[in-house]
Amino acid sequence: MRAKDIMTESIVCVNVKETVFDAAELLLGAGVSAAPVVNDKGNVVGIVSEADLIHRAEIETAPRKSWLARLLDSDGSAARDYVTSHARKVADVMTRDVVTASDEATLGELVALIEKHRVKRIPIVRDEQIVGIVSRANLLAALLSREPEGASGHPDDKQLRQAVVDAFDTQAWKSRWPVNVVVTDGAVHLWGFVEGEDVRKAYRVAAENVPGVKRVKSHLRSLPATVGMGV
């Protein structure tokens, strides 16, 4: 899946020439917490969020610094705080360093951008024009679209056991000690020893992902690290 497959296309944008009051009205009316800021050509030049608009002199929420903080504050920092709380134009309060992605970006690339830049949403562009936006909610919707619907047919216990064993054999974390798989009426039981709790959990998850498995009961035991080192 790619950005174009999950993005929200009916996006709300703020023109860079508008005021902070226009932006606040737009965010409230659309029920969104942030919106891309565009120029007259539709190019993304920034993003404005609720966080950019809540520290305002008009409602007496401008940041209040202690006397020590004011003493140590630089002139530039004080000036920036003043602009943030008093500016009337969106261009003066918006975040200019906007992280964007192509509509051909994979979901893996989008998640990497969200994590790297610590943002909640990514504007999607095509030929320098904004065409959509992907938020974390869109990614959750993509996950739900891949929810398993259950196995087609009804594999018998023998087929199910082989499928579970095959699922383990391809994993890099497979235990060096044998793991016995017993299947009864679709319920998978795992017996044996593994190298720690993480591997134990991985075995359970891998079995749960095999189509047709009704439930998994893990009887696996974690061996002490000293056993793995041959002590």
Rank of each mutant, 00 (worst) to 15 (best):
A79K: 14
V93D: 04
Y82W: 12
D75Q: 10
G132A: 00
E104R: 07
L27G: 08
T8L: 01
V125F: 04
P36Q: 03
V16Q: 11
A23W: 05
R64F: 11
E25M: 06
A91L: 08
D127R: 10
D103Q: 13
S10D: 12
T8G: 06
K116G: 03
V38M: 00
V20G: 02
S10T: 15
T61A: 03
V125Q: 01
M7A: 07
T61D: 06
G46P: 02
V12H: 01
A101H: 07
R118Y: 12
R80T: 09
E128S: 14
E25R: 15
E58Q: 10
E9M: 08
L26P: 07
E18G: 07
R118V: 11
V20M: 03
S49I: 08
A105S: 13
I6F: 06
D75C: 03
E115A: 08
A34E: 11
P63L: 01
D5E: 13
E58M: 06
I54L: 09
D22S: 12
I47Y: 08
R80Y: 04
K116N: 01
V38I: 12
S10L: 01
V20Y: 04
V93P: 00
S66T: 15
E25V: 13
E50F: 09
D103M: 13
A79M: 13
T61C: 04
A78E: 14
D52I: 05
T84Y: 14
L28K: 06
N39M: 05
S85Y: 12
R70V: 05
Q129C: 06
K116Y: 05
N15A: 06
E58G: 00
W67Y: 14
L68K: 06
A105C: 05
M7V: 06
L107K: 05
A69H: 11
L71H: 10
A57T: 09
W67N: 12
T61E: 12
E109M: 03
L110T: 05
T84Q: 15
V98Y: 11
G76A: 15
